[in-house]
Design a protein around this nucleic acid. Structure first.
Lengths: 206, 206
DNA sequence: TAGATTGTTAATCGATTAACAATC
DNA sequence: TAGATTGTTAATCGATTAACAATC
């Protein structure tokens, strides 16, 4: 064991997949799952699942497997998603609206509580529980309310500037839907969602 | 060298990122780029970029670097995105509509030419160039028109069944927005987009 | 107890990096 | 030529897997 910074990124990246599978199993009323069963569902070897989990502790019982509810809670704790997290959404175009309406975020602990758009025509609209505000006020609001998580759903041309503002305002986690690679300080977490990139890595095999 | 099946998945996965960066550079009028410059922009080592490209051929010139336009075209060829590819979209909820409206797909070679939804109220609607059809007719249409690529934007409960139908109808590439791990034959390519999974792998570091 | 499955070790496998000859 | 950068090799580094003692 040791400090959490020793856990490989790639291991951390699989935990949400495990968590999701456990949530599904629990909804189905299953109380126990073995690493073998989990692995089969996810297309991952059972050894890898056990190895991954061993970075964080001992969660199973020999001869039995893992208690689904217990392991789910442990993963939520490890991933720091036990309580609800507030998310700022920047960009209220089609995608921004779709995200604002999407209850899957809410149900899984991410609450969009601020939305920004630079288009005055959209400001004042209320696509979900919160009203669309002017991007000009974003930096101040992010800092005052202490937002740590932001979702960027603006056009590619605006994304880097939005990211810079977020970082400057104290945001630590960025989910970027704009199709460009953002340049941010090393301590800032960025994940990219670009459907074209995902499609292109598959068309290679056609 | 050898057959393309020898190229590691992880290398193929980076090519779309390179392609995207080259497209940006070209739009900015830059004609030449070195592996070092590309790497700096992407947060990847120059050695890795050269190694990755070396799986497919020799595209650069010593002492100079890579011709941006030439390398971009080569990557498009390797990734099989030289010509437009037809995409079927299943699910016309908020996300489906957002995808149908998104011109970034079109501009980068993926044309949505069929949309399906099981809700009769939505059928007949025309969110983009094509009309929403009944999911009941999906299998037949996918097979007749020879769709190889489908985007799944239905609720989690319906996703596995939709995937099964797609695979049965000859689809080879699936982009899945539903928050479940799909079970498909090994030869089928699947990529998953789940914002919650992306967020959770970052909240670990908060 | 017998059967099953964990957590962990050691071996294997694969990916990344550093370094450099080739060459533009 | 001098400077720069590629493509490639070999070394390093890290991740996955197989195997098994521990134990429920």
């Amino acid at each position: 064991m040791g400090t959490s910074s020793e856990v490989p990124d790639i291991v951390v990246g699989r935990l949400p997949i495990y968590l999701r599978a456990l949530t599904v199993l629990e909804a189905q009323g299953q109380e126990i799952a073995s690493s073998h069963e989990l692995g089969q569902r996810l297309g991952i070897s059972s050894a890898q699942i056990r190895k991954d989990l061993s970075h964080f502790g001992e969660f199973g019982k020999q001869g039995t497997g893992y208690n689904v509810d217990y392991l789910r809670r442990q993963l939520q704790r490890i991933l720091k998603v036990e309580s609800e997290l507030e998310v700022a959404l920047i960009g209220a175009g089609d995608l921004g609206h779709a995200l604002a309406h999407y209850d899957g975020l809410n149900k899984r602990g991410f609450r969009i509580t601020a939305i920004f758009d630079s288009d005055p025509a959209k400001q004042g609209e209320k696509p979900c529980a919160c009203v669309i505000q002017d991007t000009a006020n974003m930096a101040q609001i992010l800092r005052e309310k202490g937002y740590k998580i932001a979702v960027i759903a603006v056009p590619a041309e605006a994304a880097q500037e939005v990211a810079d503002t977020c970082v400057e305002a104290g945001v630590k986690v960025l989910l970027n839907y704009a199709p460009i690679t953002l340049s941010v300080p090393a301590e800032i977490q960025v994940q990219q969602i670009d459907p074209v990139v995902h499609l292109q890595r598959m068309t290679y095999y056609l």
